[in-house]
Design a protein around this nucleic acid. Structure first.
Lengths: 250, 250
DNA sequence: TCAAAAGTGTTGCAGCTACACCCATGT
DNA sequence: ACATGGGTGTAGCTGCAACACTTTTGA
């Protein structure tokens, strides 16, 4: 039997933020949309605060729309980051961000719990848009070594791990690639997410056996060498196949 | 470029709670540890609030320890539930829970964001302990039809889905079963989580091929019929195997 | 002694791995 | 013409599904 304690409202209140890892695939590289802060010159994930009357999912859609211009994106929460020191220990950094830009900078002295979301977007449809604190908003390749605000680097890492684990449960290819794409492009995407090379021919056979791709008559022209066929996802069959997971074991 | 707005501290503050789905396996059934409320006569998940200086993981350990007596359990966050109506729309219910029991019942009129955790415990080691609001704390089979507080039924459902998806990535068998167990028991656990029957002989071969089990000399006696061998997990090999996932596809 | 549960085997097929070979294209 | 990348094919192995048979136990 636990003792009873009076609740004090503010003692139990917390600030909830969201950070969105927006993935795009372009030029055979997996990229993340980042903001570059005016004052501290560091990179941050697009983020924001949860409003009192919205769900986290709605907040994430709102945040991502402001940076990309796109509605109704594929978004999933993947982890909550709640270390009490994750924001408090960086007051100096926060000061750098907000110096002279907001009326009540003491706001950032609070503890923040942040919910990590990842978004999968069609790279070419995005119009990167900076916010008030940033001088620009750009796609950055994951191969690039970056200086990131707070624990944002760790958040990106966790997002990638999640992507890898969910590769057979979520429509990752469908959401990251344009309508039409080539088999080598799809393969490169898988290789990037998995972090290792795959056999070209076995990959193709396996993908086709899933029966989730439509082979188009067109070929991709312009590049050097033999022109590859274009494919597109068959959305119904893809969604259907994902219910059990692609190549589910049990 | 987004317009700048002054931040108002409390406008952006939220109440964060945790709800823990504590799984145990006994008598060939998957069970969940639930509290039964004194006033409303409903069942709830063990839960609590995040304190200002702890991580969510620490809070979850604290909450689970109070109900089970056990330290250092296997705990994982699986989803945040943030629908603004999830708690507000149930003020009447909340009144029922707290009637006359706490000094500031208006506390429960607030909106609550709750983080769902699941815990895997060795059924026999747990000493179920009710809290102040509950008259008892018991294991309940998942086959039982239950009347649950708020969205707690949905939280349990989501926990089970997560368990199913993570069956090959997390040490689920290791944490839910006692030191020594029989192959039929392990199989029953898998069947319960997966929601369907598996072939006895193929299951055994597959499990043994993972090379994560040690076959003991002892057999389980007492039951009717032929006495089955006892097995135990080889922890190092199990953890090693999980790094790539059991039978990883890619 | 017999029903029910557990241990052990076998066979055929599907899918994967690891390759070789041919074709198309721009320089 | 040739280097490079893309399309297609095949042999062998592994592992799984779907089965049958034997062994042990308590009632």
């Amino acid at each position: 039997m636990t003792e009873i304690k009076p609740f004090n409202s503010t003692e139990y209140m917390n600030h909830i933020s969201l950070d969105c890892v927006i993935f795009g695939f372009n030029n055979n590289e997996l990229k993340v949309l980042l903001l570059h802060l005016k004052y501290s010159k560091e990179n941050t994930l697009p983020g924001g605060f949860l409003k009192y009357d919205e769900t986290l999912e709605q907040a994430a859609q709102r945040i991502v729309k402001e940076r990309t211009g796109l509605d109704n994106l594929f978004l999933k929460q993947f982890k909550v980051f709640s270390d009490p020191e994750r924001s408090r220990s960086n007051k100096a950094v926060m000061d750098g961000i907000i110096a002279g830009t907001i009326p009540d900078p003491s706001f950032f002295e609070n503890r923040f719990i942040t919910v990590g979301f990842y978004a999968l977007v069609d790279f070419l449809k995005v119009k990167p848009t900076p916010d008030f604190y940033s001088d620009h908003c750009d796609w950055v390749s994951l191969n690039t070594e970056l200086s990131m605000l707070l624990d944002h680097k760790q958040i990106i890492q966790e997002a990638i791990v999640t992507l890898r684990l969910q590769l057979n449960q979520q429509p990752i290819g469908l959401k990251l690639l344009p309508e039409k794409f080539t088999m080598p492009e799809l393969q490169k995407l898988y290789e990037t997410i998995l972090g290792r090379d795959l056999d070209r021919r076995n990959f193709q056979r396996k993908m086709l056996n899933y029966n989730i791709l439509d082979k188009l008559q067109e070929r991709k022209t312009g590049g050097a060498h033999k022109s590859p066929y274009l494919y597109s996802f068959n959305v119904e069959r893809y969604q259907e196949a994902l219910k059990d997971g692609l190549s589910g074991i049990w």
